Deep mutational scan, measured.
Amino acid sequence: TCPLCKTELNIGSKDPPNFNTCTECKNQVCNLCGFNPTPHLTEIQEWLCLNCQTQRA
């Protein structure tokens, strides 16, 4: 489950994953609780959960 919103993560499912791993804290959170803060920078593959995003802001 997502630590932030308690959504079930579909780990091991044949569906596309509905979660990602935060590059900062390494927690697995669902796609609604994390995002790529710099989608225009292709050389930085970063994906932050809302916790890390808030701490950085």
Rank of each mutant, 00 (worst) to 15 (best):
L32E: 15
T21H: 11
V29G: 06
H40L: 10
W47F: 09
P3Q: 03
C30Y: 00
P39D: 07
T23C: 12
C30N: 02
K26N: 13
E46F: 03
I44C: 12
E24D: 11
N27Q: 14
N31L: 13
H40F: 08
N20M: 15
H40Q: 09
Q45N: 11
L41Y: 13
N27P: 04
P17W: 06
L48E: 07
T54H: 09
C5R: 00
N18L: 06
N27T: 09
P37W: 11
K26H: 05
N20G: 13
P17A: 06
C2F: 00
H40V: 12
E43I: 04
H40M: 11
E43D: 08
C22Y: 00
E24C: 01
T23R: 10
Q45E: 03
C30E: 02
Q45M: 10
C5S: 01
I11Y: 13
N10G: 04
I44P: 14
L50F: 05
Q28D: 03
N36I: 07
Q45R: 11
C5P: 00
F19I: 15
G12K: 05
E24L: 03
C22F: 00
F35N: 13
G34V: 10
I44D: 03
P3Y: 07
P16I: 06
S13Q: 14
N27L: 15
T7Y: 04
L4T: 09
E46H: 06
N36F: 12
I11W: 04
W47C: 07
C52F: 00
C25D: 01
C2N: 06
D15W: 04
K6Q: 10
T21R: 14
N20E: 11
T54M: 02
C52I: 00
E24W: 06
T42P: 07
P3E: 04
C33P: 01
N31F: 14
C49I: 00
L32M: 07
L50C: 10
H40T: 15
F35Y: 12
C30V: 02
N31C: 13
T23W: 13
W47V: 13
I44F: 14
S13D: 03
L41S: 12
G34K: 01
P17K: 14
N20R: 13
E43S: 06
C52D: 01
I11C: 07
C33W: 00
N10M: 12
T1N: 10
L9E: 08
C25S: 01
L32W: 11
L50R: 15
T42R: 13
L41F: 14
P37F: 04
I44V: 11
D15S: 09
P3G: 07
C52A: 00
L9A: 12
N18F: 06
K6V: 05
N36D: 08
G12L: 10
C5H: 07
E24K: 10
W47E: 12
C33A: 02
P17Q: 08
C49L: 00
T21I: 09
N10V: 05
T21M: 15
P39C: 07
H40W: 05
C33L: 01
H40A: 13
I11M: 12
N27S: 14
C52V: 00
T7R: 09
D15C: 07
I11G: 05
F19D: 02
T42W: 06
K14T: 11
N18Y: 08
N18C: 05
L9F: 11
